[in-house]
Amino acid sequence: MTTGPVHEALAGARLVDHHCHGVVTGDLDRPAFESLLTEGAPWPGISPFDTPVGIAVRRHCAPLLDLPRHAPADVYLARRAELGAPEATRRFLAATGTDVFCVDTGYTPVPLTSPGQLAETANATAYEVVRLESVAEAVASAGVEPDAYAETFRAAVEEAVRQPGVVAVKSVAAYRTGFDLDPVRPSDPEVTEAARHWLADGGRLADPVLVRHLLWTAVDLGLPLQLHTGFGDADIRLHRVDPTHLTDWLHLTAGTIPVLLLHCWPYQRQAAYLTAVFEQVYLDVGLTLHHVGPARARAILAEALEITPFRKLLYSSDAYGLAEFHHLGALSFRQGLAGLLQERVDADELSLPDALRIAAWAGGDNAHLVYRFSAAS
């Protein structure tokens, strides 16, 4: 691999992972590991190891388990089990070179490490991101009258974000309704009527009016808002999660809160457009990076940075469940961004001092600017 000053700088940089999840706390057999290796469901006769991310795990994670590169899946999993989950997790998290994790705690179908446990294992600092849909669903489960829903939800969210270490909120509207929503703040009667139907039917929050209300409540809170966009599991209707569907809402919310577009693939160019024309919009290509691996990370980042202002790109892994994803996300980001910037330096399209500044901004400085971690400590 070609190296240069930018590679050296990014290889040694301490990162801020502005959006991730916890790691499974127990040992994993092959079916359990493979279920976490894919955003879909494993198919009979087709192993998730035979995917770009599966190949990347065997290539780039095996050496951290004292195995040769490209170790076969069975050998890899046997060695992982021999070391045990705590030791494997420690190795992968240490290898990320991450100083700060911002952890979404709103999705835990299996037991995961808490932000504090993640930080302790990685010798880092962790902050929490509150998932708004989880708060709304907890309010509904506790019991609330439709005409009191809006006030009760707001009070519950305000209580959640007052907890020590909370730096942002997140919405998974992409999974529930998509973004082709009426951008206008819903009226009180509209919210009450929508709550009446949702509370009677139960289930996940997927009412368009209540999702709009949730997004506008986030604006009122004043904290950065993370929005899942693009690639996700089979609940996503991909054509409805193009972030440009948010354009009218972004016009209406201009001058309010930072909006962080997460993941973005295959809409990284559309997201880049939004960062270029809206002061409050930022992006990352987390989740994408570990799924494409270091081999394609540079290409994804190149498209994201075609027009994105350099102070608008952040790093995230969006690692969930497998500590391998934390490692792959960081490695893919470092190698991909370094290759892209070094190429521009070598072509005299970018000075080396500018390239080093951009690398430092994306690796952590931009996240510090948005989240103001010292105020949440």
Score class of each variant (00 low, 15 high):
residue 222 G to S: 04
residue 157 V to F: 06
residue 200 A to S: 14
residue 135 V to C: 00
residue 223 L to D: 01
residue 195 A to T: 05
residue 356 L to A: 08
residue 217 T to G: 02
residue 239 H to C: 07
residue 288 T to P: 13
residue 298 R to N: 11
residue 147 D to F: 09
residue 144 V to G: 08
residue 258 P to R: 01
residue 327 H to D: 04
residue 74 D to R: 13
residue 105 T to E: 13
residue 307 I to W: 05
residue 245 H to A: 14
residue 60 H to A: 13
residue 88 A to G: 02
residue 135 V to T: 02
residue 291 H to Q: 13
residue 346 D to V: 07
residue 257 I to T: 06
residue 334 R to A: 12
residue 217 T to L: 15
residue 111 P to F: 01
residue 141 S to H: 11
residue 329 G to R: 07
residue 246 L to W: 03
residue 109 P to D: 00
residue 371 Y to H: 11
residue 25 T to Y: 07
residue 250 L to R: 03
residue 328 L to G: 06
residue 41 A to N: 12
residue 109 P to L: 01
residue 76 Y to R: 07
residue 106 G to A: 00
residue 97 G to W: 07
residue 149 Y to A: 02
residue 169 V to G: 09
residue 337 L to E: 05
residue 6 V to L: 07
residue 132 L to I: 00
residue 162 R to T: 12
residue 57 V to K: 09
residue 21 H to W: 05
residue 171 S to K: 00
residue 200 A to W: 05
residue 58 R to Y: 08
residue 280 Q to E: 10
residue 277 V to Y: 03
residue 288 T to A: 14
residue 295 A to H: 13
residue 248 D to W: 08
residue 129 V to N: 03
residue 343 E to A: 14
residue 139 V to I: 03
residue 205 L to H: 01
residue 258 P to M: 03
residue 221 L to R: 01
residue 87 E to I: 08
residue 206 A to S: 15
residue 150 A to R: 13
residue 191 V to Y: 04
residue 289 L to D: 11
residue 162 R to N: 15
residue 306 E to K: 10
residue 259 V to I: 15
residue 224 P to H: 02
residue 171 S to L: 00
residue 336 G to Q: 04
residue 224 P to T: 01
residue 341 L to S: 08
residue 317 S to E: 09
residue 120 E to S: 13
residue 252 L to S: 10
residue 167 V to Y: 12
residue 371 Y to V: 05
